[in-house]
């Protein structure tokens, strides 16, 4: 438990939905939220980061977390958003866009509500989940972006 407390102290989070689940990202890492814009497919790149988008003149990879969490990939809806975040990739800050079925809100997630991801009984790879927060009877998944993107 001690190992995760440093990673899961209270933080301002942006919550977004993917296939009915709620995910939370550190709001500090979020640059902007875009409506759906044209995506350029990268042949041979695989499903997880299969596309590129233009974020204010910069070319950013578009990642689909559904691939990493074993969810089905479905067509975009009017609620679909691209959440642009800055992550560390091999020591370099990199701009990456994340696909979200719906973006909810920026909210405070209290340290007390966060629990370590259970090692068993979870549908997802435990190392992709930093922790799970409970709020109003709902579970909020805090993905471990470092690990998810390191795995490529």
């Amino acid at each position: 438990m001690a190992a995760v407390t440093s990673d899961t102290s209270s933080f301002q989070a942006l919550t977004f939905g993917l296939q009915g689940e709620i995910f939370a990202l550190d709001a500090d890492s979020v640059r902007e939220i875009l409506d759906v814009i044209p995506v350029t497919e990268v042949p041979g790149a695989g499903d997880f980061v299969g596309g590129l988008i233009n974020v204010r003149g910069k070319v950013a990879p578009l990642a689909d977390l559904r691939v990493k969490f074993g969810m089905e990939q479905q067509p975009h809806t009017t609620d679909t958003r691209f959440v642009v975040v800055e992550i560390e990739l091999a020591g370099e800050p990199t701009i990456v866009a994340l696909l979200a079925d719906k973006a909810y809100e920026v909210t405070e997630i209290g340290a007390a509500s966060i629990e370590e991801a259970p090692a068993i009984g979870m549908r997802w790879r435990a190392d992709y989940v930093k922790g799970i927060a409970k709020r109003d009877g709902e579970f909020i998944i805090i993905p471990d972006m470092g690990r998810i993107f390191a795995a490529g």
């Binding site: 042949p43 990879p61 990739l89």
Partner: peptide, 15 residues
């Protein structure tokens, strides 16, 4: 291209 596409070798970049 970002490191996420380091293994895609048909392309040298994007514009």
């Amino acid at each position: 291209l970002s490191k996420l596409h380091a293994d895609v070798d048909s392309f040298s970049g994007a514009t």
